[in-house]
């Protein structure tokens, strides 16, 4: 399970095949030739043959040309890079140093000496640090995700630790449908190439857009309102010459 859940750029294609590649699965079953799958296979073959005949008859050229061997799968694919958090966050101490810069400390600096409290689930319950942290994430408490034995890592539901950089593994435990959509390119912003045989792609991770403590997507002010009437001054065209 962890293998599949970890967000590994090179595995993107693999997911697509595992979920979307129905034809691949069929072929494997037929090779086993078990009696139950035999009937399924025959039905599939008939259906495919019938479908192809129909496609020919209804002369859908695009569809007929559709399943040609893809050039893309032969060429080496460029990577899909998922942006990751730089590492464990640092906490502002509220003081500044000699140069006027804020002094921050690693989580472990304080938490190494403080006693973890499994019941805490908002910063309001704390008397120091993390004040004002907005929390709205279901019924979770801090230690649902933060690792009480090593605060510079996160904690999976089964108790194993996971690096901050691999936060998506953590989120994906509960938000399975979002992770599934993400894995298939149907959730989360991206830039770069749709065709990985021609260039790479960069993708956001969960916490690029969702504050982990208050994950609801924030309200935004819409940009670029439409204009309905032509507001171009008439004389402008003449002035261009």
């Amino acid at each position: 399970m962890p293998q599949e859940l970890s967000i590994n750029p090179q595995a993107m294609r693999g997911w697509n095949r595992a979920v979307g590649g129905g034809s691949v699965r069929h072929r494997n079953r037929v090779s086993k030739l078990s009696t139950t799958t035999w009937t399924v296979a025959v039905a599939a073959v008939v259906a495919v043959a019938g479908g192809m005949a129909f496609a020919q008859k209804s002369k859908a050229p695009a569809q007929a040309a559709g399943e040609i061997p893809r050039v893309a799968s032969a060429a080496p694919l460029h990577p899909v890079t998922i942006q990751r958090p730089a590492g464990p966050p640092r906490v502002n101490t509220g003081t500044t140093n000699f140069h006027g810069q804020a002094v921050t400390v690693a989580c472990g600096t304080c938490h190494a000496t403080t006693q973890p409290n499994a019941r805490t689930h908002t910063s309001a319950e704390l008397d120091q640090f993390h004040q004002g942290l907005k929390y709205a994430h279901g019924e979770l408490n801090c230690l649902s995700c933060h690792n009480a034995t090593n605060y510079d890592t996160l904690r999976l539901a089964d108790g194993r630790s996971v690096e901050f950089a691999d936060v998506m593994t953590l989120c994906g435990q509960c938000h399975g449908s979002q992770l599934r959509d993400y894995q298939h390119g149907a959730h989360g912003g991206m830039t770069g190439y749709w065709d990985l045989s021609r260039g790479p792609r960069t993708r956001n991770n969960c916490v690029n857009c969702h504050d982990p403590h208050s994950p609801k997507y924030p309200l935004a002010r819409p940009v670029f309102p439409p204009r309905d009437r032509i507001s171009v001054p008439v004389k402008a065209a003449a002035a261009n010459h």
Partner: peptide
Amino acid sequence: GNLLDPDSEIRW
């Protein structure tokens, strides 16, 4: 994406 690529995101 490419509608003709069975592994494409759009097809999924």
